[in-house]
Each structure stands twice: as C-alpha cells, then as structure tokens.
Nucleic acid binder design. Structure first.
Lengths: 199, 199
DNA sequence: TGTACATCAGTGAACGCGCGTTCACTGATGTAC
DNA sequence: TGTACATCAGTGAACGCGCGTTCACTGATGTAC
C-alpha cells in the first residue's frame, strides 16, 4: 500500500458498495469500510465530509446501475414490440431489486436526504426517466398528467413487488396465505408481471 | 407511581408505539421507552426478553390496526358495490401507510424476524386476509392461484405507492420529473387509485 | 538541476456518546398454615 | 386473623461495546525560483 494511495476515494466507494450489499446499510460503519480498504479509520475523512456523504455516493451508484439496466431492457430488445420491452423493463427492475436488495433498500432509505445531494437526485431521476420514455412510447399523444399517473402506477407496482417479495420470502416456507400466494408469483415472475403490468 | 405498577407491560408497549411513530424505529432505545414510562431502564426486562420482543409487539399492533382499518372499509360501506368497497380499501391502506409511515416502516422492516414471532405473523396474515376476501368476492369462481396473483398484484400496488410517496414527498417541491408526477398523484389520490386498482 | 517550502493525504490516540444487557439488591405482594 | 416465607416487579450501578468524529502529527508530493 502506497502512502499516498492515489485511488483511495474510489476504493472506499467500492468497498462501501460491496459491504452495503453484503451486510445491509445499517450494518456498515465508516471504520469497517476503511478497514476493508486497508487504511486507517480516519483516512476516509480526507475524501468524504461525513459518513452520509459516502453513503450518498453508494446510493447514487445504485441508481446509475438501475438506470443502465432499465435502459438495456429496451436497447437490447429492439426487435420486440414496445409492450414487450416494457414488460422486460419491469422484469429487469424487479430482478435488480431482488438481487441487490440491500443496495436497493439503501437507495430508498430515509437516512439519506436526497435533497442534500443533487447528484443523487439526478441519478434517481435518470432511472425514472427510462420509465417515462417507454410509457410515452406506448401511449402516443398522452397528456403529461396522465403520463405521470401511468408512470407512478407502474413504478409503484414493481417497487411494491420488490418490497413484498423481500418481506414474504421467509413466510413462503411457513404456509401463510400471503406466503402461498407469493410462492405462486415468484415461481413464474415474468408471467406474473405480464399480467400485472398490463393496462 | 406505584411500586408494583400493575400495568407496566401495557404502558411500555403504548410508549413504544408512540415513540416509534414519532421518531422512527431506528431512533428508539429501550432506555428511552422506559424513561417515557417513568420507570428505570431495566424494568422492561421484567416483561420482555429483549428489545426485539417489544418491537415485535409494536409491529403486531400495527398489523392489527391495519386489519381493522381494512375491515372497516368494507363493513362501513355496505351500500357500495364490491368494486367501490375494494377501492375504499385501497385508499384506506394507503392512508394508513402515509399517516403512520414510521410504524408502517417498522412493520416491514427486516430487523424483526416475523418467523420468530408467530403472533406477529398471524396479525400480518389477518391484514392480508381482508384483501383476499374482497378480491374473492369481486372474482367469483376464480382459481386459488389466480386469486393469489391478484392479491399480490394489488397489494404490491398500494404497498409500492406508500413507499414511493414517502420517498418522493420532498422531491415534489424540487421539480424533478418524478416529483412532478407524484404531485399529480397525491393531489387526487382517490381518483388515482380508482385508475390504478382497476382491472 | 537543486533547494526551500507549501500542501496533500495519510497516521494513531483519544473523546464522548448511547446503547443493550446483566447483576446484586430491595421492597411489595400473595399464600399456606 | 397472624405469621412466615416464597415470589414478583421494581431499583441503581456497572460492563462492554462500537460508533462518528476530532486532533495533533508526519511523511510524501508538487512547485516556484
């Protein structure tokens, strides 16, 4: 390890990203992140004003990745109809939320005040804009207000599903009504989304 | 204050409920709950094995209240069609989630392992069962699998909406696309739900 | 090219805090005879 | 009804921990002349 590391900021961010995903954002300390980067516990303060600063960066990366994934759902499926690409996007969203649940939770956690981090707000907006684009394409001539409503509707649909599946995952093995219903859904998520995102 | 309090368990729970709603579950300590009940910090251990025990009770009460509210949406509107009652129920759900956001967050927080608290699981099931009933009524003859799918679909819809509105509340004043869309939705939530819960 | 000096990016020690929980205790209450 | 005693439901002190952050510091790097 060089004394002047040269790349520490980046390394701290990526340590933080992986620790967040591994342990959840409420089990991350600045100290442990520094340790993972083989650096003293005070070193991060050369690059981040506070812990929240670093967490905001992690969240921002999450939204950037999400936007990228949503974007790919359309660009990689140009042969599909708009409707099919829309379903793909919903599927990609839910997949992202489930596979990176801890990061996803940080992205939606109230512990980071997005308003204080304009770049984070912008990254989150970027993901939402992917949704706007496809829904606008699906509904030519739609009014701005109706476009907004449709976006929120479908966004809430996939967002809620990510939350519920995470919640209910364990219940599935227990045999509650909710658990039974959820196991039907997760067994064929794509066909469920095709039904649920129809309109 | 009597030495043998007689009602301490109940008082601790209700202190915990109000502190949770006021400050959020991650800003509650056993110590502060005990203090609010005018009792030493160790007194709760006569009634709860751990902090998680008490939190589970708070969560349970939340689900019971939710189930009650959902139930009222149908019983208090017997003159309405099933469809209208269903919309009322969705509205009541979202209202509950928004008005008691901190409690709602605890109810869905992974910090309490529902499987360890059968009574909590049962309370959560009770709320879900209200949804099952009305959806079954709306779809006579529906198969169990399809009933499950429809329940999850609509549950995810309202659950997601609660999450998003909480998330985006501040953005509304900032003028992001998501904020603009959300302010359209919140301006007339009932008509939005009438659209979003249609099928 | 060499030198003086400012600045940068690390370090280890320490502060101060709040927390969950345990412990030995004590005073009140309930009960058997 | 009185008494002896077990149990119950509180108490204050203390343990041990991890945390974010500050501080005075030091060695490396960059730069002006």
């Amino acid at each position: 390890m060089k004394y002047h590391h040269g790349n520490l900021k980046e390394e701290l961010i990526s340590s933080a990203c992986s620790m967040c995903e591994a342990n959840g954002h409420d089990h991350m300390s600045l100290r442990s992140i520094a340790k993972e980067a083989n650096v003293s516990q005070t070193a991060p303060y050369r690059h981040f004003k506070t812990k929240e600063d670093l967490l905001a960066e992690v969240s921002k990366r999450g939204f950037e990745k999400l936007a990228e994934i949503l974007n790919q759902a359309t660009t990689q499926n140009e042969n599909m109809t708009a409707k099919e690409r829309f379903i793909e996007m919903g599927f990609a969203y839910v997949k992202f939320g489930l596979e990176r649940k801890n990061t996803y939770d940080l992205m939606h956690s109230p512990i980071i005040d997005k308003v204080e981090f304009p770049e984070l707000l912008e990254a989150a907006s970027g993901a939402f804009d992917e949704l706007i684009k496809i829904i606008a394409e699906l509904n030519p001539g739609i009014s701005d207000a109706d476009l907004g409503r449709q976006c929120i509707r479908h966004w809430a649909q996939v967002h809620g599903l990510v939350g519920l599946i995470g919640d209910t995952k364990i219940d599935e093995s227990i045999g509650t009504n909710a658990g039974d219903a959820m196991s039907i859904v997760t067994k064929d998520l794509r066909s469920f989304l095709t039904m649920a995102l129809d309109f």
